[in-house]
Design a protein around this nucleic acid. Structure first.
Ligand SMILES: [Mn+2]
Ligand SMILES: [Mn+2]
Length: 408
DNA sequence: GCATCTC
DNA sequence: GAGATGCAACGCCCC
DNA sequence: GGGGCG
């Protein structure tokens, strides 16, 4: 008799057999959570987790060596898969397509967790209508330095705006630093229209909460505010779904809330162990999310009323680069964050008088996705520096060329 | 994590 | 049989 | 076609 492979666990889930390889493998070194712990978590909250992903194609984000190692994305469903795994084929403007996994039951949930999936990232459409989202997603992204209280303030204002345009919002922590508000809509509008509705919504939140929230695309225009990331509603963009475990040391969960919990909630309260207990006690606050579907007419009418968003100024010279609305200079590009920040410190040393007038949000440090690896860029917004004192763009403090090897 | 390719 | 490799390539807006 | 954004 051939024994089943060394150290695998065969689970029976709703009459289907799911093999969990390396069940004792540690996924979260700090909290000690194993693969099998995560399978048990997802099965315990399956009613809620499936409400977030059922009938939706999803991108697989696989942490096959735990959260400390880099994950990879996989759009196409593995060719070898149980016959009960459902899929949907997405088509792109390029002519390419991808047959993505659709998780519709607890067994499929266990199967994707075994593949190394942690957070689940479904599209805002259902498999039976891939061109018309049934979910508008309000993605509240705090810029650096923004505290939780400000996110809550923006969320409550967002709720007022939703109310005014006749829509119901379902709030959850993102599991990272921000919040998501899900809005169930009738699948009557295409991606372009849903995104326009989301952008209009974002502009209205900014109008009602100036300084707290922003709908500005360019980072240097945002300041210390909550970015209402309307672009998350574009085609081929996904969001971590309800009850997703995020790849942070404390195993935080994107946790559905009731609106009356929002003011008191803190993201770090909701982790795999605490959400297990909470779900057993309260069930899913989003249980009613599919009972009603809203209309985008009011938001699209407002879009018409407001007209196009303010366009950035034409670049005066002949260069084909966007001209920033802000006096922005680039300081450094480097392979690592410390290297980039050293460059920033040297620059500060040379311009002490300028540093005194900089606001925290005037220093922009971004991780950039290069051809293969990550690199870092530092920019400074000189808006608070008097024109006479503004240093010119200088040669970069550190100059890393992320394409150096491949361009040759 | 796993199928697949190469030695 | 052991070891290496691939697993995404988008979409949007503006020069 | 590329930069910036996610
Ligand atoms: Mn977000
Ligand atoms: Mn976002």
């Amino acid at each position: 008799m051939t024994p089943t492979k060394n150290s695998a666990e065969l689970l029976e889930v709703e009459g289907r057999e799911v093999r969990i390889s390396n069940p004792g493998k540690i996924v979260f070194p700090e909290s000690g959570l194993t693969k099998l712990d995560l399978v048990h978590y997802y099965l315990a909250v399956a009613d809620g987790a499936l409400r977030g992903v059922a009938n939706r194609p999803m991108v697989l984000k696989r942490f096959v060596k735990g959260i400390e190692e880099e994950a990879f994305f996989q759009k196409r469903a593995p060719e070898k898969r149980p016959e009960w795994i459902e899929t949907a084929t997405l088509h792109y403007a390029s002519g390419n397509s991808a047959e993505e996994v659709v998780v519709n039951d607890a067994a499929a949930l266990a199967w994707v967790v075994n593949l190394g999936c942690l957070d689940l990232n479904p599209h805002p459409v259902r498999a039976d209508d891939l061109d018309h989202p049934d979910e508008l997603r309000i993605d509240l992204d705090p810029m650096p330095g923004v505290d939780w209280a400000q996110i809550v303030d923006v969320a409550m204002i967002a709720r007022d705006v939703l109310d005014d345009v006749g829509l119901a919002g379902w709030p959850k922590t993102s599991g990272s630093r921000g919040m998501h508000i899900l809005v169930r809509i009738e699948p009557r509008w295409d991606y372009r229209q849903v995104r326009l509705a989301a952008e209009t919504f974002a502009r209205e939140v900014e109008r009602r909460a100036p300084g707290l929230a922003t709908a500005r695309w360019w980072k240097e225009e945002r300041g210390e505010s909550v970015f209402v990331d309307f672009n998350q509603n574009a085609k081929d963009r996904t969001v971590a779904s309800a009850y997703s475990v995020r790849p942070l040391a404390d195993a935080r969960v994107s946790t559905p809330l009731d609106w009356d919990e929002v003011p008191q909630a803190r993201p770090e309260q909701f982790t795999v162990p605490t959400v297990l207990e909470r779900f057993a006690r309260l069930g899913d606050p989003h249980a009613g999310i599919d009972d009603d579907a809203g209309q985008l007419d009011a938001l699209l009418a407002l879009a018409e009323e407001l007209g196009p968003a303010e366009k950035p100024p034409r670049s005066g010279d002949g260069s084909s680069r966007r001209q920033s609305t802000m006096p922005l200079i680039e300081i450094a590009r480097a392979k690592t964050k410390p290297e980039a920040l050293e460059g920033l410190e040297r620059w500060k040393g040379r311009h002490p008088e300028v540093v005194r007038s900089l606001a925290p949000a005037d220093v922009l440090v971004d991780g950039m996705r290069g051809s293969s690896s990550l690199w870092y860029r530092v920019r400074v917004n000189l808006q608070h520096v008097s024109e006479a004192e503004r240093p010119e763009q200088e040669p970069l403090e550190v100059d890393y060329d992320p394409w150096a090897t491949r361009r040759a």
